[in-house]
Design a protein around this nucleic acid. Structure first.
Lengths: 183, 183
DNA sequence: CAAGGCATGTAAATCGTTACATGATTTA
DNA sequence: TAAATCATGTAACGATTTACATGCCTTG
């Protein structure tokens, strides 16, 4: 049920359309949460049916009507309940990268090294993206009054992404050395 | 399709039952990949139908027959193709923890601090588990001949988990300070 | 004039979780 | 004697992805 809460959380900051919701998610939570429009649209409908969001339909010529969604009191209440639930357990995560590295020994040494180098490049590219793109997005959003108070936590979360990616890079560099020596 | 490949990867190390597969996954890949028996059993059947694994049924008195699965040449070939595919993209991951922290500003300061402290405890517990339990499992497995050559990458992967968790802990400690001062 | 952004969705398929069902043996 | 472990699964539901479908407007 985390996507419902993501949607409610964003709408709690500002009313917007499904399309804008998708863009917002892509530019803010993208490195720890994401969703496709084909998942967002039906969910918005469902949230509306259960009275957690309401819709204002704005007719547009020659295009589908624009549907601006905003959170209701009922929706906000539910969102706050979710937000207050203690995060006591570390929920299981999945990492295709780690999974593949775990099994890599079935290939020969050169292929193992190639895979690790490949992933190292991907992580370096990711770090650059996080440093440039995301910090810019946060600055822009911070300008808008409705998002202003979000600043502190957004910046923290962005730093988290940077730190973890940096850790991955350092680890991969180390892993390359170990594999070269010991395999 | 990563679970099929996980299963093929484990069976490539040693033949075993669905039940043992589950235990193996729980004790080795658990912090980056996991699965329920209700997903494993049907998948094994499917892999058998497509000729990627084969089964040896061992009758047991008073219990369901034991079904020992092993990988076929076809299965191994497919597994190696998957393993060789370049890991160029960083696949999108999901983190309920980050998601919640991202939205936490909707609560008041004390609740924010409580949530962060709660997660800090969870991460510290996780670190302990990784340091004790997992390293023990790896040592045990390393004793068995069929798993011996896996040692280097397993140890690396375990270290990755430790490093990332340590990074999370440091970040959460920092986040607590920042929130106390700035919020 | 082609590509991409704007703006809405539906349908099918796959992936994953939770609950249910059975029944013997071992351990606390 | 209650709970956990061994050992197999099915059914229902929920979450997610991929493909399809439409059509205008803007930018290169």
């Amino acid at each position: 049920m985390s996507l419902s809460n993501t949607i409610l959380g964003v709408l709690n900051l500002s009313a917007m359309t499904g399309y804008d919701l998708k863009k917002f998610i892509d530019h803010s939570t993208q490195f720890f949460w994401h969703a496709e429009l084909s998942q967002i649209y039906p969910l918005l409908k469902q949230l509306e049916t259960s009275g957690k969001v309401k819709v204002e339909v704005i007719p547009v010529e020659g295009k589908p009507d624009k549907k601006v969604y905003s959170i209701t009191e009922k929706g906000r209440a539910e969102f706050l309940v979710w937000l207050s639930e203690p995060m006591d357990e570390t929920p299981p995560t999945k990492s295709p990268m780690l999974l593949k590295i775990f099994f890599l020994q079935a290939l020969d040494k050169n292929e193992v090294l190639a895979q690790l180098r490949c992933q190292l490049e991907a992580q370096r590219a990711r770090l650059k993206r996080l440093q440039l793109e995301t910090s810019r997005t946060i600055e822009e959003s911070a300008g808008r009054t409705s998002f202003a108070t979000q600043g502190v936590l957004w910046e923290l979360v962005r730093q988290y992404g940077e730190l973890q990616t940096q850790t991955s890079i350092t680890w991969l560099e180390q892993a390359l050395k170990v594999v070269e020596e010991k395999l």
